[in-house]
């Protein structure tokens, strides 16, 4: 069966998006009237640190053809858990947060793989439940992180443009890329997303793979939330859907398709970086938010069109009709 034409979107989409956004970024002095500084780059990477690992986790499940809405909940829970338990030892907080994220992901992945149930409603329910759990832990209020030593360490400048969270985020992507490109796991994840039946016939352990992926996405989301809370010295029990939406945009701009089977960690990095750069462009130029929103809408609109089989059928139909009209009618 012919499924989809060749797969350049996974490199083309993030490549083009990143180049466009970079050009915009370097043009910001024209609007703001001040030159770009290393600090702007630092801030961009801070933005990447905020959403990068979340994007990576979400993207990995999307490559396997699943959609893990619950990462938004795990993100929030991870932040809160790290702040609550890491007041004296930052590392302990992170370990507990990541452990909880992994456990949540593993349980969810087990249910989804075992029962072959669509992931969206399950993870949506988990999201709501985790939001509630976090809120219950904190009494619905923001909790401040008093370990100033850790917060200061988080905000250190390394080589002028990096900070520990942004380096951790980049490391996460490097590891993911290495696993993806260097082991058979990457191939199997994409196969699971591309054609689950064929993967089973070929001998891929589909269920095991799914559990692993959900565990990974849970851990990454929790880590992401923990780092974010530490560096902002506070955990917010309900940041709304914004992190999830931006991470999804990062994934889609990163060349991942919700149908599955397509995408690479490098593309996800490009997608997350594009989102972070746009956020920074916003901050530098102080343009109204709606420019960014409309830009996102346009970007996603293009992505929708690329992935719409009905649209492709319509084009086929037009082409065939044109071909029919060109050939002369033999009948009166």
């Amino acid at each position: 069966m012919i499924r989809r034409p060749a797969a350049p979107p996974e490199t083309l989409v993030p490549g083009v998006a990143l180049v466009v956004v970079l050009i915009t970024f370097f043009c910001t002095p024209l609007m703001s009237g001040r030159a770009l500084t290393a600090f702007d780059v630092y801030n961009t990477f801070q933005g990447l640190a905020q959403l990068g690992l979340l994007t990576l986790g979400l993207g990995l499940t999307m490559i396997a053809g699943e959609f893990d809405l619950s990462v938004a909940g795990t993100y929030v829970l991870g932040g809160m858990l790290a702040v609550r338990t890491g007041q004296s030892s930052a590392i302990l907080g992170i370990v507990l947060a990541v452990g909880a994220g992994a456990a949540i992901g593993a349980v969810q992945g087990g249910i989804i793989a075992r029962l072959r149930i669509p992931s969206l409603p399950v993870t949506l329910a988990t999201y709501v439940a985790l939001l509630g759990l976090t809120s219950a832990m904190s009494g619905g209020l923001s909790v401040t992180y008093t370990n100033t030593g850790a917060t200061l360490w988080m905000d250190r400048h390394i080589a002028g443009i990096f900070s520990p969270p942004s380096l951790i985020t980049l490391t996460g992507f490097v590891i993911a890329a290495a696993v993806f490109g260097g082991t058979r796991l990457g191939r199997e994840i994409r196969a699971i997303g591309g054609d689950r039946r064929a993967s089973r016939v070929a001998g891929v352990r589909v269920e095991r793979g799914l559990v692993g992926l959900f565990t990974a996405s849970g851990s990454l989301a929790a880590l992401s939330g923990a780092l974010f809370s530490y560096s902002y010295a506070a955990a917010n029990p309900n940041p709304g859907l914004q992190p999830l939406i931006l991470a999804t945009v990062g994934c889609l701009v990163g060349g991942v398709s919700l149908v599955g089977g397509r995408g690479l960690p490098a593309g996800l990095l490009a997608g997350a970086l594009s989102v972070a750069l746009l956020g920074q462009v916003d901050a530098i130029t102080a343009i109204p938010d709606y420019y960014t929103e409309l830009l996102y809408a346009a970007l996603l609109g293009v992505i929708v069109a690329v992935d719409a089989p009905g649209l492709r059928r319509g084009l086929d139909r037009l082409k065939a009709r044109a071909a029919t009209i060109r050939t002369p009618d033999r009948r009166p």
Binding site: R4, A191, G193, D195, A198, V201, G261
Partner: peptide, 18 residues
């Protein structure tokens, strides 16, 4: 039924699941 994955490269398909 054809059981290769169009999203993967030829090489990856040859190695898949072995």
């Amino acid at each position: 039924e054809l059981s290769v994955v169009p999203e993967l490269t030829v090489l990856d398909n040859l190695l898949l699941g072995g």
